[in-house]
């Protein structure tokens, strides 16, 4: 059987959903692989939604909004873009970022809607089925994406992405603007750390492990694991459970 990609699209009511309707009214044809969830604004798309969709085994997720500057809600699409870029950064860690896409389609661009959807479907077709689809899923990938979902659900990451435009484009509470490079460096670091921490938490939620065990399981340097474990311990998320010889074993609280 040939592979038919299973695609989910989040469409904003005012531009891209209207563009999709116009494609229909104009009888423009495109492959029938995408299912649409209508939201009022692309800015409504919580990063969690994207991970949830990928975790169910959906092969690709498309977010479509109004063109920059044309947002029905003034700036919702800029917020959508920031969140999307963040999700991409997470997915890049496991080389899964090509399975999601963000684009802009206006209410008058029926043909463009059909075109971008077709292109995305074809790109997913080339990438093949998601390792999270079907009966035997790639459990490690699943855990990684689950940890990412938990990361984008965490207040630290959400606060960073939520404040980004104010911090880098307007100015913060103290009247200063952070250069985008500087911000990105902080943000990238936070993304990486939070991911590792959530991965650790996920592993410790089913079993008791040492730093070494975790380093082996997560294929990371023990020193990096240790550093993040200390943060988790100070946050009150994990604690020692017992000592095995000289090695402390940790558990999730």
């Amino acid at each position: 059987m040939t592979f038919e990609p299973k695609i989910l699209g989040f469409l904003c009511n005012w531009c891209s959903y209207a563009g999709a309707d116009l494609a229909g009214v104009s009888r423009i044809q495109y492959p029938p692989n995408m299912r649409v969830i209508r939201v009022m604004c692309s800015g409504r798309v919580d990063p969690v939604f994207i991970f949830k969709a990928l975790l169910t085994g959906i092969d690709g997720v498309f977010v479509l909004g109004c063109h920059p500057g044309d947002c029905h809600y003034l700036e919702g699409n800029y917020e959508a873009e920031k969140k999307f870029i963040m999700v991409q950064k997470f997915l890049k860690i496991v080389d899964f970022d090509k399975r999601i896409r963000l684009d802009w389609v206006s209410a008058s661009e029926g043909a463009r809607f059909a075109q971008v959807v077709t292109e995305f479907i074809e790109s997913i077709r080339e990438q093949g089925p998601s390792p999270l689809s079907g009966e035997n899923i790639d459990q490690e990938l699943f855990n990684n994406l689950k940890a990412m979902e938990n990361s984008v659900s965490s207040d630290r990451i959400r606060a960073l992405v939520g404040r980004q435009r104010r911090i880098t484009e307007v100015e913060n509470e103290y009247g200063e603007k952070v250069p985008i490079d500087e911000y990105n460096a902080i943000f990238d670091g936070a993304i990486h750390d939070e991911f590792v921490r959530q991965r650790i938490l996920l592993s410790l939620s089913t079993k008791v492990l040492s730093v070494k065990d975790l380093a082996a399981e997560l294929k990371l340097d023990p020193s990096e694991i240790l550093e993040n474990m200390l943060t988790l311990k100070s946050r009150g998320d994990i604690d020692y459970q017992s000592i095995d010889g000289n090695t402390p074993l940790y558990m999730r609280i």
Binding site: M40, G43, R44, D46, G162
Partner: peptide, 11 residues
């Protein structure tokens, strides 16, 4: 009702 605040709310 754009929903941006909901998608952003840190908690």
């Amino acid at each position: 009702g754009c929903g941006v605040c909901g998608a952003t709310c840190t908690n």
